[in-house]
């Protein structure tokens, strides 16, 4: 029995592309709008989502927002612009330095450096979300999510920040597979070549923060989640017990980020508990 995370290759790519573009088209059009807006970071995830959106809705119906902070890497903006150019989509560059710095002017005193880094990272992420949702209204566009399955499962994202969107075409695709998908989508090499980073501060690296590589985590999460194997079974198959447990704990601890807020049940029929309809119900 094959137990490796399956690769997106030239054989399965056409149907995956057809599926993901149909998803975007069908789920966007049924809401009564025909456009999406997304944050383009210069990384591989948002680039892949952008290529899919353009393939689904046409280049005239996709808008990218590039939202650098003063410490964002120059190459991020350049890479994002490469995507904009390659697809011929419209874009806006909105610097978020002023509002983030303005807020933290009054907050910084006495906070340990490490905490302020995380708080500022979260703030930047939510600032971008807030701008995306403003542009959602302004451009009559749905916000397209760009979080991959790996970061959603590991909780490596900001709740109500980069994790917020109306719909997400790549949220069931692991980071390792995103690279395979991106290559087949024809995404520029410079985007593929750099190490994964949230780029919230200088030199930030996903993999050093997580303590393991995406490749290691993805092959484990494929067994834990997709195959529903217990952690001890995954370890028995030869995977590093330390990483398996670290991954499993991260998944459990971040469950709250993937759910709607809890509502205290008082009435006989409560939103999302026993008032059950599809979002597509409307």
């Amino acid at each position: 029995m094959k137990k490796d995370l399956p690769k997106i290759d030239e054989h399965n790519f056409p149907i995956i592309f057809k599926h993901l573009t149909y998803f975007i088209k069908d789920e966007v059009l049924k809401t009564g709008v025909n456009r999406v807006v997304l944050g383009l970071s210069g990384g591989v995830d948002s680039a892949a989502a952008c290529y899919l959106a353009s393939g689904a809705l046409g280049k005239d119906n996709v808008t990218a927002l590039l939202m650098p902070y003063k410490s964002s890497s120059k190459s991020s903006l350049e890479d994002a612009l490469k995507v904009v150019e390659a697809l011929g989509i419209s874009h806006y560059i909105i610097d978020i330095t002023k509002q983030v710095d303005g807020y933290f002017q009054a907050e910084k005193d006495g906070t340990p450096v490490n905490d302020i880094k995380i708080r500022m990272g979260n703030k930047m992420s939510r600032e971008r979300m807030s701008i995306l949702y403003d542009y959602s209204y302004k451009l009559k566009s749905l916000v397209l999510g760009t979080s991959n399955k790996s970061e959603l499962l590991l909780g490596y994202g900001t709740i109500y920040g980069d994790m917020a969107s109306a719909l997400n075409p790549i949220g069931d695709i692991y980071k390792t597979q995103i690279y395979q998908l991106a290559k087949l989508l024809g995404i520029p090499d410079s985007i593929m070549a750099k190490p994964p980073s949230a780029d919230l501060w200088l030199g930030q690296s996903d993999e050093s923060e997580l303590g393991f590589t995406y490749e290691a985590a993805d092959s484990i999460m494929y067994l834990l989640i997709d195959k529903m194997y217990k952690p001890e079974v995954v370890v028995s198959l030869g995977y590093d017990a330390g990483i398996v447990n670290a991954v499993y704990n991260k998944i459990k601890k971040s469950q709250y980020k993937r759910r709607m807020p809890l509502i205290a049940k008082v009435s006989e029929r409560t939103i999302n508990i026993d008032f059950r309809y599809l979002r597509d119900w409307s």
């Binding site: 054989h11 399965n12 599926h19």
Partner: peptide, 12 residues
């Protein structure tokens, strides 16, 4: 529902 990616296979 369409589900499951298989390497080398052109369908779900």
């Amino acid at each position: 529902p369409a589900r499951g990616i298989t390497e080398g296979l052109d369908k779900f």
